[in-house]
Design a binder for these strands. Structure first.
Lengths: 227, 227
DNA sequence: CGGCCAATTGAGTGCTCTCAAGGCGAGTGG
DNA sequence: CCACTCGCCTTGAGAGCACTCAATTGGCCG
């Protein structure tokens, strides 16, 4: 299906360190904005005027469905980009979960930067590409997994994120309520709560308090999360 | 939150007719490949060597989970792009559902084109952006909706696609089996079948044969699909 | 006609949801 | 310091929807 040469070149595809640096510079020089917990960054249908990057805190992207049920599409934590895409209007709502600092680049500025500098374009492409992957993984999770597996998957992803940021992967400080978790995992708050209890009684986790979870058996948690 | 000027400029964002034309030219000059039904285009983990566009036929992108269950991430029909993203390896499996013709551009070629021509980059960005939107909509569907609503959503999306391609939106020629639908909607084949029967008995659809569905009550189908 | 595959239908189970009550912790006021 | 309240979480009981297992039907092809 392909020669060794093609594979070789494919190993350094659109992504690269250079892009990252150029893009980082853009973010570094951008304006910063603070958002209190529960405040909305934007609502579905708003004209898309900025692209954001979470500097600290946490934001959730969600959509409301008929019947008033809420689906959280994604949690955006430190380093995550929000609002990328070619649409002229926002496609979902964005709400801060806790006090959050955001880097903001006006779409106008970004479009110009993208036209002038291919590296910036590729940097954005990378970010978008990563979001697509995340979204598809989440999709698989919702389509196939039980409540226990979904929650385990969520906890493992938080643990991995801790590790990536040099924090203790064994202690999870949940920046979210049970309701948020439920809406993210496509469950009800009661099921999430029961599932936490089940994991606790199985000795997989320990619940220090509502917002702090200690992982006692990483192996089993990861097994439940499915690999 | 923004001035009128910003909104004005935001109305012609990264997407544009020019990009489309430049990108179309790329596709037009690309190599074509034929794939018989059930054949795989690529498997998860394969080195990413081409980006594809469906010229005719249908492809499904799927992942296998522990326990052997399959989640279909996306159906790719005529005009849809497959394999975009910065990863060096394929992230899911791609299998032809029927005899399919594909346009292929080597990743190497694409990367060069992207570096030289910002329009091509933006065209790819658009495609990726669209895929993200689709994926998120599908995610919401799986997270929140009942079997009936999910199937209705699927049928409505097929109907819309028919309309977009100038075909009769009232007659759906399913290029997929019940199993495919089940794996796409996160249901079992029996539930899909029962749901078809329910829609039939409610007079919403008419089942000409397994592969041909006639919509008898668009309004109710769209209502079930949730808007 | 018989074999095969896909789809349908039925019966029973189980996981998650709904509805409802109770517990925990923080903040407030007497 | 304690009682009260409020928000968030937990736990319980029962119902319902989708799943599992199993049998049957329908269409296609040799």
């Amino acid at each position: 299906m392909q020669s060794a040469g093609q594979v070789e070149i494919a190993r350094r595809p659109l992504a690269s360190r250079t892009n990252e640096i150029r893009v980082e510079r853009k973010w570094a020089h951008s304006r910063e904005r603070h958002l209190e917990a529960k405040r909305h960054l934007f609502m579905e249908g708003d004209a898309k005027s900025f692209v954001y990057k979470v500097a600290s805190g946490a934001v959730c992207l969600y959509r409301i469905q008929r019947g008033g049920r809420r689906q959280i599409i994604e949690f955006a934590f430190e380093g995550d980009v929000i609002g990328l895409g070619v649409a002229t209007a926002e496609e979902c709502n964005a709400q801060a979960l806790v006090l959050t600092r955001l880097k903001c680049i006006p779409v106008v500025t970004l479009v110009n930067a993208v036209r002038q500098d291919a590296s910036v374009a590729l940097g954005m492409f990378e970010a978008l590409s990563h979001q697509l992957l995340t979204s598809r993984q989440h999709l698989s999770c919702l389509g196939q997994r039980s409540a226990t597996e979904r929650l385990a998957t969520f906890l493992v992803s938080l643990s991995r994120r801790n590790q990536d940021f040099g924090r203790d992967p064994g202690v999870l400080m949940l920046p979210v309520t049970r309701i948020d978790i439920a809406d993210y995992l496509g469950l009800t708050i009661e099921t999430v709560s029961r599932t936490f209890s089940k994991l606790k009684s199985r000795g997989v986790i320990q619940i220090e308090n509502y917002k702090t979870i200690r992982i006692r058996n990483v192996g089993e948690l990861e097994w439940l999360a499915g690999g």
